[in-house]
Nucleic acid binder design. Sequence first.
DNA 1: GTGAAAGCGCTAACAC
DNA 2: GTGTTAGCGCTTTCAC
Lengths: 356, 356
Amino acid sequence: MSSSRATLMQVAERAGVSLASTSRALHGTGASQAMVDRVRAAAAELGYSPDAIGRSLRMKRTFQIAFAVADIGNPVYVEMLTAIHEVLAPHGYRVVVMSTGPTVGTTVDLVRSLGSGFVDGLIVSPLRTDDALVEAIRQAPVPVVVIGRSLEKQGIDSVSTDSAAGLGQAVAHLVEIGRRRIGFVNGPLDTTPGAARQRGFDAATSAPAFAGEHAETERADDFTVTAGLAAARRLLSRTPAAGPFDAVVAANDLLAIGVIRAAGELGLTVPGALAVTGMDDTEIGKVFQPSLTSVSLGSADRGRAAAQLVLDRVGDVVEPAQQIAIGPHLVVRESTTTPRADAVAGPPASKEKSAR
Amino acid sequence: MSSSRATLMQVAERAGVSLASTSRALHGTGASQAMVDRVRAAAAELGYSPDAIGRSLRMKRTFQIAFAVADIGNPVYVEMLTAIHEVLAPHGYRVVVMSTGPTVGTTVDLVRSLGSGFVDGLIVSPLRTDDALVEAIRQAPVPVVVIGRSLEKQGIDSVSTDSAAGLGQAVAHLVEIGRRRIGFVNGPLDTTPGAARQRGFDAATSAPAFAGEHAETERADDFTVTAGLAAARRLLSRTPAAGPFDAVVAANDLLAIGVIRAAGELGLTVPGALAVTGMDDTEIGKVFQPSLTSVSLGSADRGRAAAQLVLDRVGDVVEPAQQIAIGPHLVVRESTTTPRADAVAGPPASKEKSAR
DNA sequence: GTGAAAGCGCTAACAC
DNA sequence: GTGTTAGCGCTTTCAC
């Protein structure tokens, strides 16, 4: 921490030219070479660096974008954040991380707080959505891009994925490898992902292709390992008339890990006695033992797309609301296939295989 | 995105009072109740919300703190970020996430960029440090807190931990459970953590208590699972004259997971044939199978401490540079103890046990 | 190509 | 307790 910073005014005085010329010289907009040299020299001598706040006030742009999620600890959001940062930083934008809290109410508050104009745009991935939130986003004074549910009809930019279809891919894969009695460990139904995935599971297991087999859902309190462990214990303690479960579909990778731990407690081998699939295709799932078959929802892609979208909006591209969809795809790994001892590789993007 | 936002001036006109009174009324500083009511009503009618930029320019405070790390995907940094956010948000501070890049040079650039005054302070955890960086931090126009190496002598606020001692705890634990031939999988030596951990391992294994046993280091290219897997393959393919390795100390949890995967490839059971310890006590280590014995370096605590420190500094607390140390402690889990089938619990903070 | 001046939205002296 | 006014640092008309 040293002496107070130099202002443009001081640079101007030092160079012996006007404030306006100094500004122009530093931006290279319509100034003679002599002027540019002179001003640059003065700026260097003073260690001048332009003040972001003064500039923001004048230009009405902060060069900041907010990214808001319920829980920044969740690996999916971390992947999104990384991707968003990678897209925005080269354009000179900073990323402000915010927390929505678990409820819609606090998310609405957050969107309203955009009124203080500290960012040029917002990327938000709400766990739950209602009319008040939709309305708040519509009224927001800066562009908002939603990652999650498609909100195109509501006139809101959104980046979505078809997690219901993704769940279908997981079920189809399990049926294909001969599993017949499939349990589903889902998270809370009142969340956007929870609801979509339940729809996907119900649709997949009531399709003709699934006839004659057994399907059953158990709901975890949260999308975490701990909640998944508890839910799986409940699920696996029941034995359907059709026979014991031979597969479990989990609504995300963390729940899937909980399921595998529960299987271990009960002496069930994975995938031998119980095949398990996750969703989100996280790093942790790739390195877990057994590595996790998982439905990729393209977290990084969704982050990138959202960042690009908000960048377009901030750049005054006035178009109707856009909806970008990232297709889910299944990545098959050890938790649904017999592992070969020598095939235990590191985090491989190579073993991918698209299903359906 | 709707109509342009209302300004304080407009609220003043609407209320039929002066600009200053409006400001005062809204802040509750020396205004009559009647004035407050009147102004509040006008503000509400206009949906006024104060402009953060105008206020920042005037107050010379942005209410933003930057958090900069090389790789925001690393679970340790995510934990720090969460803790930092939790401390700062209640004080009205936003968190700006920045990337230092892997080299010292880009970190120096980042510190210099503080000159544009977009944040009131910085928390940075550099992987590598040199004189130029120390000097840049000293010259920085806003308070900077370093998480990592102690920089008290250089007059810089820092939050550190004794990872060398932590490594000693891991080695002591392995010796205690009867392991005699211990390998060490470290990350790059030219990083601050890499160097410290190597020092710790060398010290622990050259202490009298370790006499007559075998110690050997293998260096991974990076602190990742993939690099750990490759390094462990190299290490375990060698058989010391004293006999095969019966334990591996890894410099962090990600490396440790790579080690366990390598052990699996070679048919070595963990912890039966090979006991493995990690460091950082991450979430992923807790849920891994086998769950990871790990040296906690108090990531969340360090984040909290750094946030508190930067908060004190921006609050004009002028004191000599502070150095806060968070003590490491060993958390024993399955990877160094025989697991009981029914003891495979969820992420437990309960099974902790301090060593030494 | 250069300079003078206005003004972005806000807070804090300073008078009354 | 209230109003008037200056000014934070910058960009951008507008005249010349």
